[in-house]
């Protein structure tokens, strides 16, 4: 499903070259849940962005369903992201001018999803337990509620791959448990592939495989 080959990403800071991702290789099978753990600044978020085609690697390649994503044109890659994958971030990623339902529906504005996407968006809203907040704007939602809306949004395009960066960071235990349950359900029922960057031991424990990242390099610590 996902094949990461000798992937590197460097940044130049004050004339010094910093390797955020250093010659990383691993594969993720279809329907697999992989967690990546590691200290802050170890390169986890950059790795996730490289897999999602949000930033270009210095060297190496990412193949998704045997397609090298960086050989696609920018428009093709955008359409590919829109169809095949979705992201969950560690910060509030909702558009403040849109209601909860509209935020969930937002990715469908950039692809061909037909007119009636609201029905599925409402299902997802119910799934994250915020049915009554359909018309609420982000400013009227708590941090946890906003995160749940963002998680619902990550499934609106029925993605094959979800790339989640600290999806339960700053959340209370109850919300955390709901999110873990949702991930499990989507992984088992819909066969969604998850790559989750986390500090959360419960989420990490859910994953069939666990990778550890340090100084830009990845080592497999379980599964495989």
């Amino acid at each position: 499903m996902i094949e990461v080959k000798e992937l590197s990403k460097t940044y130049s800071i004050d004339g010094q070259v910093f390797r955020a991702v250093d010659n990383v290789s691993f594969t993720v099978r279809r329907g697999e849940m992989v967690s990546i753990i590691g200290h802050s600044g170890s390169g986890k978020t950059t790795l996730l962005s490289l897999i999602g085609g949000l930033t270009k690697p210095a060297s190496g390649s990412v193949l998704i369903e045997d397609r090298a994503i960086w050989s696609m044109s920018d428009d093709e890659l955008s359409a590919f992201r829109n169809r095949k994958m979705n992201f969950i971030y560690q910060f509030s990623s909702l558009v403040p001018t849109l209601t909860s339902l509209e935020n969930i529906m937002l990715p469908t504005a950039f692809g061909d999803y037909g007119e009636d996407v609201a029905g599925y968006a409402r299902e997802l809203l119910a799934l994250v337990g915020l049915k009554e907040k359909e018309n609420s704007y982000p400013s009227h939602l708590s941090g946890g509620q906003q995160r749940r809306i963002a998680i619902a949004r990550a499934f609106i395009n029925r993605p094959d791959i979800v790339l989640a960066d600290e999806p339960t960071g700053d959340l209370d235990e109850e919300t955390e448990a709901e999110i873990i349950s949702l991930f499990t359900r989507m992984n088992k029922d819909a066969g969604t592939t998850f790559v989750v960057v986390t500090h959360n031991k419960d989420i990490a424990a859910l994953a069939a495989r666990r990778l550890k990242m340090a100084n830009g390099a990845v080592t497999e610590i379980s599964g495989g």
């Binding site: 999602g52 949000l54 920018d74 428009d75 359409a79 992201r81 558009v95 990715p107 504005a109 950039f110």
Partner: peptide
């Protein structure tokens, strides 16, 4: 950030 998020959701440069 908002524009970056839109791109991550699949918005093309043209969007």
């Amino acid at each position: 950030r908002e524009l970056g998020l839109l791109r991550a959701m699949g918005a093309k440069k043209g969007h």
